[in-house]
Amino acid sequence: MKTFREEKNFSWCPGCGHGIVARLCAELIEENNLRDRTCCVVGIGCGGFHHHYMEIDALEAAHGRSIPVATGYKLGLPDNFVYTLQGDGDCASIGLAELMHAANRGTPITVIMVNNGVFGMTGGQMSPETLISQKTPTCPFGRDAKLHGNPLKVSEMMQEMDGVAYLARLSVATPTLVRKAKKGLAQAFKAQEEKLGFSFVEILSPCPTGWNMKVVDSYQRLAKEVAEILPVKEFINKVGGES
């Protein structure tokens, strides 16, 4: 596989979901022959390593700003393929305004938000996606809705936007869900290639280190507790394909 740099070991922690997402992206770029004209815009955080393992052009944007960078890029090169890879801290906290406006405008870019519910790189602090009662270094007694607000349902927020061509919440919690995630991602890529509008996938992913859990336990938490609040679901699909 030309896109994927197999010789370079991932620098993510053991069990990190980012590795699965990176592999799925590399496979899809390869399968769809996109490598020559792909640019990946990564955010700040662990997601920023994403492009290190791929032989594609990449831009590391300032924190939260991947989406306007991708927007400007797409304006300049409308026939190139551009996707952002951001964590939930980058995409849903500091970069939420940019996400919402790009979605509503229907800018034909693909945004992948790897949602692990914490700021992983800085040590697992509370993110907008941290679940109620989940403990983090910045909500040491557990997230309290009255103090910290509720987990932000980013995908649900975009449901009513006409500019969105593909919208889904996916997960890497089990092998079955990983296969499903790849299909969803493929649809999101297709939405951009067919210039149908904005495509967004939220991929639920574990952060065993940030959650202070054993790897297998973190995947089980993802499959149960997290999915109860943030269900895996396809919200919008204007591509028409099966996912």
Binding site: F4, I20, T174, R179
Partner: peptide
Amino acid sequence: CGTICPDV
């Protein structure tokens, strides 16, 4: 195993 492995 190949599907779930986070490190390829």
